[in-house]
């Protein structure tokens, strides 16, 4: 049975019908309310990685980020020539105060990870990560870039709406589980599109070289002593494997921005992301980077799979009931 609106659209001609159909799809793509489960799971994983990352900064905090440390403020100013590359560290010159602020920051990230006052802690965590990254200019790598944008998007969505202490408390008060909402959907979509941009430009960059096309690039990464964390030099005996890994990685990165959106190919793209990122993490000493990329890929995982892997909100509620 056709609705009045559909009748009107059909009568108005194919262009109007196309616009209407496109508008409906756009609304479904961006604005259909979504449950907070995926964002909740991502919050925990990103939070743990960021907590570890910032704990590590703390091991040599004043050496790297102190006013008299390795990375002078003037360097960032000269590099960016912009007053907008902000950092809260610019306000502190005393190293003890710096450490106190750092510990407060770690507490903030821990609260975010656990999902305490998540609407606030998610925003502060995103700001904190950007601030550290801006201050750490000169000693950064992909980990900082990816974890910062993931945290921004988690702050946009209601990432405390599932698997959080906030939610647990809300349920105990009888407020019900975290509701589906539009900002969850927008956050997930932004993560998905940003991940596609990352892979697309990573692939474009590789196409400008020769070793990614002649199948030797992976040798260049595995035979680099400074990167090496597992001795993979045995692979010199199997250069055919190096060629497969090189061309396979390039093909996967090139295909990802398109094939990840198709129902048929999405599981394959996600499946390949696991060995690629874990391989980079394990063999090249960048486990945190490999993991954060995998967490970014979680945005594409069907929420029903996540519900099977992690206890759903309803199951948590039942557990909570049992405990009561």
């Amino acid at each position: 049975m056709k609705t009045d609106l559909e009748d009107t659209v059909i009568q108005s001609g194919p262009l109007t019908a196309f616009i209407h159909s496109w508008s409906r799809d756009w609304n479904q793509f961006w604005f259909r309310p979504e449950a907070p489960n995926t964002l909740g799971a991502m919050r925990i994983f990103v939070g743990l990685i960021v907590l570890y990352t910032h704990f590590t900064w703390g091991l040599e905090l004043s050496t790297f980020l102190g006013a008299d440390g390795l990375l002078p403020l003037e360097y960032r100013s000269l590099l960016f020539e912009s007053p907008f590359a902000w950092s809260h560290f610019d306000w502190f010159s005393n190293n003890q105060l710096l450490m106190a602020v750092h510990i407060l920051g770690l507490l903030m990230i821990a609260m975010f990870t656990l999902g305490i006052w998540t609407n606030w802690t998610s925003v502060f965590t995103a700001l904190l990560i950007i601030s550290y990254a801006n201050r750490g200019t000169g000693a950064l790598f992909g980990l900082d870039q990816v974890s910062s944008f993931l945290c921004i998007y988690l702050a946009i969505g209601n990432c405390g709406g599932a698997y959080s202490i906030d939610q647990w408390i809300a349920k105990r008060r009888g407020a019900g589980q975290g509701r589906s909402c539009t900002r969850n959907r927008i956050a997930i979509r932004l993560i998905q599109i940003h991940m596609c941009a990352v892979y697309l430009f990573a692939a474009i960059g590789k196409l400008q070289g020769t070793t990614w096309l002649n199948g030797e690039a992976v040798w260049g990464t595995l035979a680099s002593y400074e990167y090496q964390s597992i001795d993979m030099s045995w692979i010199a005996n199997h250069m055919w494997l190096v060629a497969i890994l090189t061309l396979g990685t390039l093909a996967w990165e090139l295909a990802y921005p398109a094939l990840i959106w198709l129902k048929l190919t999405r599981p394959i793209m996600l499946l390949f992301s696991i060995p690629i990122h874990l391989g980079i993490g394990a063999c090249m000493g960048m486990l945190s980077f490999g993991l954060v990329m995998l967490v970014g890929n979680l945005a594409f995982v069907d929420p029903s799979w996540l519900n099977k892997l992690l206890p759903s909100s309803a199951e948590l509620e039942l557990l909570s009931e049992d405990m009561r």
Binding site: S82, A217, S224
Partner: peptide
Amino acid sequence: LAPLHRILFLGHGYRFFGPDPGPT
């Protein structure tokens, strides 16, 4: 757009190990 890139820590090239993995 540089101010926005700086404020949000965006504006990166994402050319991981591109164009070629070079010497360290």
